[in-house]
């Protein structure tokens, strides 16, 4: 069992409480979207799950073990392109392969890395360095490296936030393809502030309120996949999901404006 469980997590930074009494269980193979405003503790939540920071109180369990430090079991893709700029794409990915498949020779590792890069459509760019790539390509590279880690749990922190709409849509499709093709499916926790993106991707959406960050709503999306982008805007079921999400934020004080059409909060 690789279920993720957060038991009454609080995280404070000095006097500032970032996350408060947050409990959550994520099932194997689930695609969970965490939706919330910028600065609302979404990134902190992922960093806690990754083990890059420790909760002030409460515990996090993954695969029945308490999370105390980062592990390749819980791969993370950061918001900013976090490939090592001094290594080529292939070498960046090969570093992850070396962790997941340590027995491989140097050459086999590079071959495996090239396979991962082909899977995200970067087969021709393997020898390139991050500064030679566009933002979308770098983010594909970061995704390939995290996939190469072989993590059963993928943590994605607004991974497509800085991309233009066209590239964002392509990478959303790519992520869904990769997630659906794998058996068993990886568990994904995807952080975003974009309602459309949440509706397109998630099995379940957690609405996170800010100051302090806590769960203010939870919506299960029972729509078949693949979902069309048009349906997300126009179809009846998605309109009611959208209304339900917006209601979560409206119930809270007025300090969080909700933008219904553009898909931003």
């Amino acid at each position: 069992m690789t279920t993720l469980r957060l038991a009454d997590i609080t995280f404070a930074y000095g006097d500032r409480v970032i996350l408060e009494h947050l409990s959550l269980t994520v099932a194997d193979g689930e695609f969970l979207v965490v939706l919330g405003a910028s600065g609302g503790g979404k990134t902190t939540l992922l960093r806690l799950i990754a083990g890059l920071a420790a909760p002030t109180t409460g515990q996090i369990f993954f695969a029945d073990e308490e999370v105390r430090a980062p592990s390749p079991q819980r791969g993370i893709v950061f918001q900013d392109y976090a490939l090592f700029p001094w290594y080529s794409l292939r070498d960046n990915v090969a570093l992850a392969v070396a962790k997941s498949e340590p027995r491989l020779s140097r050459r086999e590792r590079r071959e495996r890395a090239a396979e991962y890069l082909r899977a995200v459509g970067l087969g021709d760019a393997a020898a390139k360095y991050p500064h030679e790539l566009s933002g979308g390509m770098r983010q594909r590279g970061a995704l390939a490296r995290t996939l190469a880690l072989g993590s059963p749990l993928l943590l994605l922190d607004e991974p497509f936030g800085a991309l233009d709409p066209h590239n964002r849509a392509r990478l959303q499709n790519l992520l869904l393809e990769i997630w659906r093709a794998a058996t068993p499916r990886r568990t994904v926790i995807f952080v975003t502030h974009d309602i459309d993106e949440a509706l397109l991707l998630g099995d379940r959406i957690i609405a996170l309120g800010s100051n302090p960050g806590r769960i203010i709503g939870e919506i299960k999306i029972d729509a078949p996949r693949p979902r069309s982008r048009e349906d997300i805007i126009t179809a009846e079921n998605f309109r009611s999901y959208r209304a339900a999400i917006q209601a979560c934020y409206c119930r809270r004080d007025d300090d969080e404006a909700v933008d219904g059409d553009g898909g931003g909060i």
Binding site: R47, A50, G51, L52, A69, P70, S71, P72, R74, G75, I76, F78, D80, A82, F84, L95, A96, K99, L149
Partner: peptide, 11 residues
């Protein structure tokens, strides 16, 4: 920090 975080995640 992002490089340090990456190194930690990569183990």
């Amino acid at each position: 920090e992002r490089h340090r975080d990456n190194a930690r995640v990569l183990g």
